[in-house]
Design a protein around this nucleic acid. Structure first.
Lengths: 228, 228
DNA sequence: GCTCTAACTTGAACATGTTCAAATTACTCG
DNA sequence: CGAGTAATTTGAACATGTTCAAGTTAGAGC
């Protein structure tokens, strides 16, 4: 993602200063209102230097995402270490996403759309963002695996990727949520996580068994498409 | 959406020329590669004139959308007039969307992302795009109402808006679809429309009846949020 | 310490979306 | 037809993401 990893002490310092300035400014003013010139100025480097370490403004956003992901991991780790109930693990993990992102709610919209652009190298469905996406998927793998729920193999296979997609959908809803305390998002999270866990439990029921293979195949083909 | 509707013959001519040039160029070169200067040049007006009729480049995209929607309506009207089976009506309507948009597949990505931006006035969830969205929702209302399916009132109420959201999801999938003839998208359409109609049929089954009110409430709260 | 190469830095230059005040044109009303 | 007003047109100017060729600096090898 970076044009070049720094090779000198000065280079390391510059890169860190640019990234730090960008993260601060995105949070303070949002994506569009933050200009590359402002970032360079606050980092005390020239405009051109920023482009030496980050090919584009969008690539700085990717680092912003990575930052929030790390906050999310920290926030949820203790619960994942002690709780075994899948419903609780899932609900709390998704709740932690929106709680972690709350300070960035005002700027999340423009950032999200930048990333949603299918032709952007940052699109999470393929490209430069893949390593980060894989980390998020791994988290959901841990959410499921670390629980005491018995999930059939065919479902377990595609569940983490599906939950990642589900998280994205929740975030998109959250962006539009203007309710006090973001209560509506929390309600939707509680309802949907409950629904998901119930559906997993129903997977072997006669009514659903008939469609199970078809539905799994469908989800796999939707979620597993590897573009670019 | 337009700053001003034309009041003179010359004005009408200019606006039409700008819009026509924009539609052609978006199709030829895509959204980013089409500059406002190129549009103005092909329309034989000055750069400033374009901004007299369209507040921004994004607003020209909205017209592009309207254009494809009208093509879609034309394409699907005959079938909706004669066919009564809901599954067929729905499948063919959604199929017609991607078939209609096929000439724009290469450029659809950048256009879609522009519109997906929650802070854009063009975001379909609220703002300038609302009139067009209402038209699309009305089409799905017609798809359901014109069928011989008996849909419970509580479901019928939120079904058209939900189908509109479903159409958006299919389009997002289609953007990434690189399979020959866009076959994967067509398969996903067939599977999902079938699933939707089956679920409607199952709505009164005991297993689902327990969750039905909750699920409907959930969908309404997700899809009915009125932002901005 | 000197030299040399790779790394790094710089700021001017470019393209493009957008704004705006001034100039021009179209239309209405007497 | 002749103002006068509203509509339209214009292009220069601005902000910003990005590129790049040229200059400067850091660190390795001797």
């Amino acid at each position: 993602m970076a044009i070049a990893a720094p090779k000198t002490r000065r280079g390391e310092h510059s890169r860190a200063a640019i990234l730090g300035a960008a993260l601060d400014l995105f949070q303070e003013r949002g994506y569009e209102a933050t200009t590359m010139r402002t970032i360079a100025e606050r980092a005390s480097v020239s405009l051109g230097s920023s482009y030496h370490y980050f090919p584009s403004k969008e690539h700085l956003v990717l680092e912003f995402y990575r930052h929030t992901h790390e906050l999310h991991l920290e926030a949820i780790a203790p619960l994942l270490a002690r709780e075994k109930d899948l419903a609780i693990r899932l609900r709390q993990t998704i709740r932690a996403v929106v709680v972690t992102c709350e300070p960035f709610h005002a700027v999340a919209g423009s950032i999200f759309s930048t990333v949603a652009n299918p032709s952007s190298p940052l699109n999470p469905f393929g490209g430069a963002a893949k390593p980060l996406r894989d980390e998020v998927v791994a988290l959901y793998d841990e959410v499921v695996r670390g629980s005491d729920a018995r999930v059939p193999a065919d479902i377990a296979e595609m569940l983490p990727l599906t939950l990642w997609l589900y998280q994205m959908a929740i975030l998109y809803f959250w962006i539009f949520d203007t309710s006090p305390g973001r209560l509506r998002t929390l309600e939707v999270i509680d309802e949907t996580t409950d629904l998901i866990v119930k559906l997993l439990g129903l997977a072997n029921l006669p009514v659903l068994r008939g469609s199970r293979r078809r539905i799994i195949g469908l989800i796999k083909s939707v979620v597993g498409q590897q573009p670019h």
